[in-house]
């Protein structure tokens, strides 16, 4: 028995993670970013600013009292829009990751647990998805006219439709890496004797997956989810920037750069802020994933 055997596995991992400098730094940066985007609520009521109200007399106003980062091309407060846009971007990142992750996990667990022909079909499907050029596909999906799918015109052009559309198209495209990872891990766990013991006792597939397989493959899946969040935030920003994602007036870090090409010459800082926030968020998320991987890997114990 190891001397620290009585300590829970999560305590050990937290200890390892705490020693991972970039991982810890990223954690703090991400917490700060979340605090920043949530600060929109108190700030809005405190300064009586509405993020969507335009004021054509205040276009490109420089920073000043009440408007700490100045005004954008439509005379809206840049700081508030960065905060609210951040809420949207982060939420899209989390939701699309969770939905795509659930799709990938279900497909991976089923393929890995049952094996055989079902596995063959599901993995050919996954391979086919992996082989596709993602961005063009996302653009086409983003361009789909919702009224042609039977939605009302009111809904199709609402902000909510724009938000959910991007969440859904990213999640139906970006689940493949998790599916493969989950499948490989499931195939390993499936052959463990504790799974056999449960099978000998008469356990069915749902019990087996919920009780033995998912908890035991959780660690690589958590790391993979983390890295996916970063990728999804990038996808959201690209699609919204190109005009196929979150639709204005709802701000997102991506669509705040819609007019960026002209902004670069007239008001360059308006092109710098949103991109910088995306960059910092994604790099922090990636470093967090790296730190988690380190913390979850027993071999990293020196």
């Amino acid at each position: 028995m190891r001397p620290d055997a009585a300590i829970g596995v999560w305590t050990l991992r937290w200890r390892r993670f705490r020693r991972h400098r970039t991982g810890m730094a990223s954690l703090f940066i991400l917490l700060a970013l979340i605090a920043f985007v949530l600060a929109a609520y108190p700030l809005e009521s405190l300064l009586h600013i509405d993020p969507d109200t335009t004021d054509l007399f205040a276009r490109f106003d420089p920073p000043g009292p009440g408007h700490y980062l100045g005004m954008d091309e439509a005379g809206r407060d840049v700081l508030i829009r960065l905060m609210v846009g951040g809420q949207i971007s982060l939420l899209v990142g989390l939701l699309a990751t969770v939905i795509g992750g659930v799709i990938g996990t279900i497909i991976g667990v089923i393929a890995g647990y049952f094996g055989g022909r079902l596995d063959g079909v599901l993995m050919r499907f996954t391979d086919g998805m992996i082989a596709l050029p993602l961005l063009p596909l996302l653009i086409v999906l983003g361009a789909v006219d919702l009224t042609k799918l039977g939605f009302s015109a009111d809904f199709a052009h609402s902000g909510a439709a724009g938000f959910w559309r991007i969440v859904i198209i990213i999640s139906i495209v970006d689940w493949t890496s998790i599916a493969r990872l989950v499948r490989a891990a499931t195939m390993q766990i499936r052959e463990r004797d504790y799974v056999r013991a449960a099978r000998a006792a008469g356990a069915g597939a749902p019990y087996m997956m919920a009780t033995h397989i998912l908890p035991n493959i959780a660690t690589p899946v958590i790391v993979s989810f983390t890295l996916t969040v970063g990728r999804v935030i990038l996808f959201e920003s690209v699609l919204s920037f190109l005009g196929f994602g979150v639709v204005p007036p709802t701000p997102s870090w991506g669509n705040m750069l819609n007019n960026a090409q002209e902004l670069v010459t007239t008001a360059p800082m308006l092109a710098v802020y949103p991109g910088l926030l995306i960059f910092v968020t994604v790099i922090a998320v990636n470093f967090l994933g790296d730190g988690l991987q380190h913390a979850f890997d027993p071999r990293s114990e020196k």
Binding site: S237, V238, Q261, A271, G275, F279, V282, I283, N286, F287
Partner: peptide, 22 residues
């Protein structure tokens, strides 16, 4: 390397334009 993975390509292009062209 992490920066390279994490940077939005379109924004990197924008910043290049800002610095080297504008």
């Amino acid at each position: 390397a992490f920066a390279g993975i994490s940077v939005p390509v379109f924004w990197l292009a924008l910043m290049m334009i800002l610095v080297f062209a504008v």
